[in-house]
């Protein structure tokens, strides 16, 4: 009797297929986001967020307008500009994320959504990515306006000060969301950011802006890239995060 063994080539192909199916690699973050967008659509991901977006945008515009008004003689006081832009660069991101988290809490839908295919953490990760892109754009426009108003600062230098501030804060906020289920840690992070920057400014006065100004452009770029890498790694962890809801039990 002859047993029909498969050829070596067939064996290799079948082994590779088994390994591929059995040890399925986790798709990249961007691919997961793409699948999520295709499956759910942007309207679902940003469900019930119109008021959050409106309040956040309005508040950010007010802050930047006040800064512009305060620094109207921009050539004389541009030393304050660096500290202010660094501190307030994550403002839009901060408001969008915190208000979004707060609304999630008060609707009491968290438990229910955690049992769905796409969880609130998946959506939060997607939203945070979009919010950071929007914040970069808003910061860029704000820096452009400040430069157009006569600030002697270099556009890209000022832009990367805001970008490093934004990604540093984003990474800290993401870290707090990853390690705490409630609202307390993210709120404390946001307040801590504003308070710490305020204290440093009070302590060093124009020295704070001078310090940020003295840091060369390439170093700002390096800090921005490093913080962005930490941030994206955090976003990947946030996506499909499994977390007990101890607070509600």
């Amino acid at each position: 009797m002859r047993i029909p063994y498969p050829s070596e080539q067939t064996e290799r192909r079948q082994i590779a297929e088994i390994v591929q199916k059995g040890m399925a690699q986790r798709p990249s973050l961007l691919l997961m986001f793409r699948q999520m967008r295709q499956s759910m659509g942007i309207r679902v991901i940003f469900h019930d967020m119109a008021d959050t977006v409106f309040i956040s945008t309005f508040t950010t515009l007010c802050i930047f307008s006040s800064m512009l008004h305060y620094l109207k003689d921009i050539n004389q006081s541009h030393n304050d500009l660096y500290a202010m832009l660094f501190t307030f660069s994550p403002m839009l991101y901060l408001l969008l994320c915190l208000l979004g988290l707060w609304k999630e809490r008060i609707s009491h839908t968290f438990d229910l959504k955690m049992t769905c295919r796409y969880t609130p953490y998946d959506m939060m990760a997607f939203r945070m990515l979009i919010f950071s892109c929007i914040s970069i754009f808003v910061n860029m426009v704000a820096v452009g306006i400040f430069c157009a108003q006569g600030a002697t600062a270099h556009f890209w230098h000022l832009f990367f000060v805001t970008a490093s501030g934004l990604f540093l804060f984003s990474a800290l906020l993401l870290f707090s969301v990853l390690h705490n289920h409630g609202l307390l840690a993210p709120t404390a992070t946001a307040l801590g950011w504003l308070l710490a920057n305020g204290l440093v400014y009070q302590e060093l006065n124009t020295g704070y802006s001078n310090l940020l100004q003295a840091i060369p452009l390439y170093l700002h770029i390096v800090v921005t890239i490093l913080c962005a890498c930490v941030y994206f790694a955090g976003l990947s962890r946030l996506f499909q995060k499994k977390e007990e809801c101890e607070m509600q039990c």
Binding site: S39, H47, H108, T109, C116, R117, Y118
Partner: peptide
Amino acid sequence: GYYRNNSPRQYLHYLAALK
């Protein structure tokens, strides 16, 4: 939990998308 300003149809469509 539910969104007070949603209709049942809107809310079910929303949850269906999450599922």
